[in-house]
Design a protein around this nucleic acid. Structure first.
Lengths: 145, 145
DNA sequence: AGAATAAAAGACCAAATTATCTTTATTTAT
DNA sequence: ATAAATAAAGATAATTTGGTCTTTTATTCT
């Protein structure tokens, strides 16, 4: 198993791509995004519709329309995208799927994973979308396979 | 998304349960294990068959048969169970699903996740099944929901 | 107003995961 | 030998995830 679902992988990549290519209010269409991050177009459309409905990204219909990310949304941490798509299962809940697992009734892996979960959460919450723009622009980072 | 698949959650819980209840060569049947860890019996049977085939746990058919864990297998790290069931996707590969992601061509989350993946792997590799027995016996840890 | 453009929404399909039930093979005890 | 116990293997079904296509709605431009 991977860390994120396919949906979430595509979602994060698309958000970075939109932020990267549509800086200063310019919009970008679904076809171009899908090609840019190498994902199935119609599937990605569903994902972006969902993120748009949830207010994580922005969109406008019609000619010259497309997806973009408002300046407020650019400040969102990556954890917002992950939580919107995959929920908080990566950060909370028991690694062994036990409902009663807690501090007083810990599963065998409870303490070990507590630290790791916190670290993942802090990391994803500590960086926002905008922070990657410079690095993407300077060509250090890559979004395509 | 959770960290492990359902299959893996049940698998780990079952392995702990077998190790816990069948110390010194005693065997335990699938029904008892399923009840003990609160998992669907036939589904768990499949999982244990698989782990048995892969040599992670041991089993014997017939009267007084059942599952057990040899002393060598008790020394296995938890990572062996995870790798046998969920593969190494949690430890290796790109968090964003990019095939070309690497040190020289890193995805935006590459460095952040490198440390976390390593930590998860080291943790799961650093503790073996046997180590939990004492804690389970002393009642500190819990396997049932 | 009408045509063109683009996302939103809805219907559908495929594959993987999770789950259940039945039959078979192996071992033990009588 | 036979019966009983038990895991292994096989078949099938339900659910979730991943993916595709078509129709509708909103917007813009002429």
């Amino acid at each position: 198993m991977a860390i994120f679902s396919k949906t979430c992988e595509y979602g994060i990549r698309a958000v970075f791509f939109i932020a990267h290519t549509s800086a200063n209010g310019r919009r970008i269409g679904i076809k171009e995004i899908a090609a840019g991050i190498d994902s199935p177009e119609f599937f990605l459309a569903k994902i972006l519709q969902d993120l748009s409905r949830k207010g994580i990204i922005n969109s406008i219909k019609g000619p010259n329309g497309g997806f973009y990310i408002s300046s407020e949304n650019l400040k969102r941490p990556i954890s917002d995208i992950v939580e919107a798509i995959d929920g908080n299962g990566l950060f909370r809940g028991c690694a062994l799927g036990l409902k009663q697992c807690s501090e007083v009734n810990p599963c065998p892996l409870h303490d070990e994973f507590k630290a790791i979960r916190t670290r993942i959460y802090d990391m994803l919450r500590g960086i926002n979308i905008d922070q990657f723009n410079q690095e993407l622009l300077s060509g250090i980072l890559s979004l395509k396979k």
